[in-house]
Design a protein around this nucleic acid. Structure first.
Lengths: 236, 236, 236, 236
DNA sequence: CATGAATGAGGTTTCATTCAT
DNA sequence: GATGAATGAAACCTCATTCAT
């Protein structure tokens, strides 16, 4: 099947490159052409990006399951779904790219905002508020990530490495929180439970924003930041 | 065309009958046979219940979208999907019954545990811990509810009344929280954001439990209860 | 299969009992119970009649193909289609009874009106106008006959004898027309073609009346009678 | 979304282009691909035509309701019904094309034969005889038209515009007849009733020809033309 | 007699994928 | 690279019929 050239570092190793963003770049994409060891032409890269962008929009609009190749191709201006099958090694591969691209954007948006702060508590607040500011600016990217990840099943072959990558990202964040606890900024709690609760609360707002156009994501972000600040800060 | 026997109270009226459970009984089911005003035979009721139970299991296992009539029928020991269409007026009707049944179980489990407490703060804790104890005992019911409700789109016709019912339940809970704030038990926060965050955190654990058999739901429940206790309680 | 007791006279023999009605009683029904040689109880007869009446209505409303057992049972106040299968030996048998009953009504209505006239020409006019007056009074019966007969295919087994019966009726009418020609009342034309054209014109009005509530069937009947009077009468 | 190329003239405008044919070309087809503004490839056009031709045959053989996609696909040499759904936007769309194609053939056959005559009476005769000569040559086309149109119900959505088109054609013919009456060629009668009777008589022969291979359509056509000539001509 | 339950076939449609051009 | 055609599976649903009670 050709020589594989893809990243073989462990998920954890990859995650350790990142700082504090609740969403980060994924590099474990194993797309069709890559896997066959060829370089990508310019046109091919452009087409792929176009398809991924269309997929993000369609997924955000109609959901993971209803995002058929037909709809994605239509939005991308392609006259046939065959083109998608040509560029991606099946639905899973496309979805991996969708999450990877959405995470690239999210990471680019969040990282500077988070790293602008010194204290762990401030970084946590920046992370929460940043996610919801991001939602206001790119309404489809977080929705697409949530849809894809939310529809993964445990034993889903082909997505296993992917799920592991997500776990690794979360593990890195857990490490940060532990440092915050050690530094006396946070009170005593299970970082895993806390981080998942935060992620879940953010994703819930993302889902709600889909059906409620009037929702003020930024204000909700501040409210959530307050909420989790109270839940994490050390009281004297 | 026969006397109609189904509940015609409004969602709000129905919600007001309840106290504090985060999940409550739904009564707006408009199933096939019921709508025609007939009483159900014992066998029919049994078969329907069997199908609903199978549906809950299948949905919890493979998700809302992949829960096909074929899989449900197979689990129910039926030889054809036609039998499901015979008992239910389409997929939506079955799904309504699934949520209604799961909520019936949840409500029966949660209500006594919640009402055993007097203070609003204690009831909130009981609600959170109760949901996760329930998860430990009935692993599929909360998962099924989450799957069905999580896959509803905004304008989904046929499920609109259903979504409204859920909103009404949440509105009732918001009211309870407001009373807790007025009573000086809770600090100042937006009850809607808080309740959705709680719900989202619980649902996230439910999803995680699906793929991680070793997860200790009850312990996570206590951790979450602590978390949201810190986030809500009034500090002197 | 039990001793069969049904009428074994030939179609022609049966037809010769009639006079001039364009629609006449059919007696070749081979319904389930008859075929088994039992006498029919009162209740059974009543049920059968009720089902047939409902079938006539449903067929007139939604057409032959869409007239499912479910719809017919519902209109008859039956809670199960099984009852229809019990009383009739399949769809074909029911349809035969539908046509037979509708023809019984039509024959009872038309025969006196036709036989009130002496001349062949007057009888022809009475036949045409009578059919459309009948349509005004029993809107569903002619429609049901037309729907059933119009949906028969050539090789339809189980309906072959039935089709032959209809041919026989037409043959009788052809004979009458020939006598009219011999008597100098009618000009020279092919009686088969003429009679089929008349029948087709009437059936067309029946179909049209289904969708156009404002249509004046009686007036159309007079217009058609005039039309076919001009087409048949001997000009000096 | 691309330039639309389909005919937007009104039914009446379309009808006025024609002369006297009892069946005319329909141009209101709104088929799947066309609606998306694309041009059709040669192969696609060929496959569509092949499917339509097969549909005409199947409909003529087994009737509108029994003409399933499965039978049509089989006759067209397709391995699955999905191919028909691919080329046509559902059953209605295919049926519209069936009638349109059959009418295209009928119009091409009838128009020259009708326009070869000057007098209204001669054109009426040419129309009737032409239809039955056409039946002898293309036994399935008129049958298919009759089956499809005869199975439309009043409020059938998606076929409403179609039914209106047929009415417009008939209205045009009515106008021609009125001119014939004004010109003194025809006697006094209701043109609507007359034209519907003619149409019904022709369609009846078409149906009969389906089951009686020996029937001489052309001879019947002459007989019908004589019949309606007597019914319409002015007697001195 | 009557019912409700069950069956299996058949209907249309959508989907991801493959392939020849 | 890109396209349209083709495929086969799977989806939900309706139907006529049979059967136990």
């Amino acid at each position: 099947m050709g020589t594989r050239t893809r990243d073989t570092t462990t998920p954890l190793a990859r995650a350790s490159k990142h700082r504090y963003g609740l969403l980060m770049r994924a590099r474990n994409s194993a797309s069709k052409q890559q896997a066959e060891g060829r370089a990508r032409s310019f046109t091919e890269t452009g087409r792929r990006a176009q398809i991924v962008a269309s997929a993000i929009d369609v997924i955000a609009e109609v959901g993971y399951q209803r995002a058929s190749f037909a709809k994605i191709a239509q939005r991308a201006g392609l006259s046939s779904t065959g083109m998608i099958s040509y560029h991606f090694d099946g639905r899973d591969d496309l979805m991996r790219e969708v999450v990877a691209e959405a995470m690239r954007v999210a990471d680019g948006y969040l990282r500077p905002r988070i790293e602008a702060h010194e204290s762990y508590a401030a970084r946590l607040r920046a992370s929460i508020e940043g996610n919801l500011d991001l939602l206001a600016e790119y309404p489809n990217h977080l929705a697409a990530i949530g849809e894809v990840l939310g529809n993964l099943r445990g034993g889903d072959p082909g997505m296993v490495a992917f799920t592991e990558g997500m776990e690794a990202i979360l593990a890195f964040q857990v490490e940060q929180v532990r440092k915050g606890q050690a530094a006396g900024e946070f009170c005593d709690f299970d970082p895993w439970v806390m981080l998942r609760a935060i992620r879940a609360a953010i994703d819930d707002v993302v889902r709600r924003a889909r059906d409620e156009p009037g929702l003020d994501a930024c204000a909700t972000g501040r409210e959530l930041a307050d909420l989790f600040d109270r839940a994490t800060r050390k009281t004297p």
